[in-house]
Design a protein around this nucleic acid. Structure first.
Length: 420
DNA sequence: TCTGGGGTCCTAGGACCC
DNA sequence: TCTGGGGTCCTAGGACCC
């Protein structure tokens, strides 16, 4: 059996943990640049505020005092997440951290008769020790655990823990679950299924497996198996990431190459640092940028270019140089760029880098690696004291709108850590 | 005026090989 | 006029997730 532990309204709960006066109020947390709603309290959900709505569309609610608005503070959320996960890990031998706010716990070894009380105790501990409310769904597959979790959240009678451990409960739960709410059935496919008369998860599971596989492919068939109660989603092994992307929207559009170069240098340096943190190196660097896609009246341009590296690298100099080379190749005058980013991929473990026999730059690479490591010792995720001359002076967050940001309540200056 | 960021996997089609 | 059969690998795009 799995227990899916999911933090309720996670970013809002992190804000409330340190600002108890927000308890009971309608609160939302905004994305970078104070752009969209990315987290809502129950009260703001009840007001009809949808996930992802642009902030300017609900600004009146905040102006009139009916809604509290916070900018996102990922350093804070990452730190709280680590604390929650470490509690869960100490209670169960096998834990798969699935995202910043949820984790699958393998209940093997826990007496099935005590699953519920075990998880109720978990909910209590996490709340008491971190201030974060969590809900738990217990079921024989991950997808069913997700379903159970929905019920745990929706109905207070469960006191935060809902179990699907009999066929009767499974059928009942599936009959009450819209097919589009099932984990793995997304926005594109749900309307098609509904058009064919498949409205609930139960309707879906009553279709023949071969029909599902034909319509939705092997992923759809896997979801179908999971809803039957078979464990079909493989355990996530903690492997090195295959791609790393750093991108941002800008508060104001950027028209010139000089300013864009500073931003792209920062993005590339952040990618390089993430590589070093995971002891990996990338064989390719891609730059991309976008004009403002919401402005039909302005010319649009959204180029991208990949630059291969002779030898996989993770030093700031090499990643930044490649990114800037790509940027210069695709930059065109006459556009206001609203967003840009850097992707590194073809990632391999640092230990597997094959130097070329005729690499004339081997000595230089070695020096750059040493310099990058030195920079890491001085820089945090929030601030770069040591940087290349091509990077922007000052604070990473400059040029990003964050008008309602809370303090870094839980981390001291030198322990700010980015969390996957 | 104002619209986020970061991942994974699958699939179809093209290039290339014998 | 008529033009095989079967692989592999790579990539872009789409769908999904948080």
């Amino acid at each position: 059996m799995y227990a899916l532990v999911d933090c309720n309204n996670f970013f809002v709960s992190c804000e409330r943990a340190f600002q108890p006066e927000l308890e009971g109020k309608a609160v939302v947390v905004l994305s970078n640049n104070d752009g969209c709603v990315v987290a809502r309290s129950n009260e703001s959900k009840a007001m009809g505020i949808k996930m992802g709505v642009p902030f300017f569309q609900i600004r009146n609610l905040s102006d009139s005092g009916r809604l509290v608005v916070k900018s996102s503070n990922y350093v804070l959320y990452g730190d709280i997440s680590r604390r929650v996960m470490s509690i869960l890990r100490s209670e169960a031998p096998r834990l798969e951290v699935y995202s910043i706010d949820e984790a699958f716990m393998d209940l093997t070894g826990v007496d099935p008769a005590t699953h519920r009380s075990f998880c109720l105790d978990l909910v209590r501990k996490v709340r008491l020790w971190t201030g974060i409310p969590v809900s738990v769904g217990i079921a024989p597959s991950k997808t069913l655990a997700k379903v159970a979790n929905h019920f745990a959240k929706r109905y207070p009678g469960y006191r935060g823990v809902c179990t699907i451990d009999t066929d009767e409960k499974r059928i009942k739960a599936l009959s009450l679950t819209p097919v589009g709410d099932v984990w793995g059935i997304g926005r594109r496919v749900a309307p098609k299924l509904e058009a064919m008369g498949i409205r609930t998860a139960l309707d879906f599971v009553n279709m023949p497996r071969e029909w599902v596989k034909g319509k939705l492919g092997i992923m759809g068939a896997r979801t179908w198996m999971e809803l039957q109660g078979s464990d079909a989603v493989p355990r996530e092994e903690l492997e090195a990431r295959k791609t790393i992307c750093t991108s941002r929207s800008f508060a104001d559009p950027i028209p010139d190459l000089e300013e864009l170069s500073l931003r792209v240098s920062d993005f590339a340096a952040i990618c390089a640092r993430k590589l070093r943190k995971e002891n990996t190196a990338a064989g390719r660097v891609t730059v991309f940028m976008f004009t403002n896609r919401f402005r039909d009246d302005l010319p649009q341009y959204y180029p991208a270019l990949s630059v291969p590296l002779d030898v996989p690298a993770n030093s700031n100099q090499e990643i930044v140089n490649a990114a800037l080379k790509g940027l210069r190749a695709i930059f065109k005058e006459g556009y206001g760029y609203k967003k840009a980013g850097v992707i590194v991929d073809e990632i391999i473990p640092e230990s597997q880098i094959q130097g070329s026999l005729f690499d004339e730059n081997a000595e230089m690479r070695e020096r750059e690696n040493v310099i990058s490591e030195l920079m890491d010792r001085f820089n945090t995720s929030d601030r770069s004291l040591l940087r290349l001359a091509s990077q922007r002076p000052g604070h990473y967050a400059e040029g990003i709108r964050r008008e309602h940001c809370s303090k870094l309540f839980s981390t001291s200056w030198d322990e700010m850590i980015e969390v996957r």
